[in-house]
Amino acid sequence: MGTGKTKKISDELIGRDEKVCSCSVRIAELLGAGKDETTAEVVSPAQVLAALRQKKDGQPAE
């Protein structure tokens, strides 16, 4: 059973797989990987870390 994209399996399909790792592609999508995005715009560990430390010290997080 096929999707209609290729009628037969042949050696011509070698070298024509599109993605390196489907899992990582999908996970990166969940993390917000996009053409114009960079890590810098997506997460801020410093901010979260500061809030966690404040919480630990009994002070309200900003």
Partner: peptide
Amino acid sequence: STPGFIYFFKACRRD
């Protein structure tokens, strides 16, 4: 996922 770790490491480096 390797890219997930790279994503986190780069953010840590920046901060």
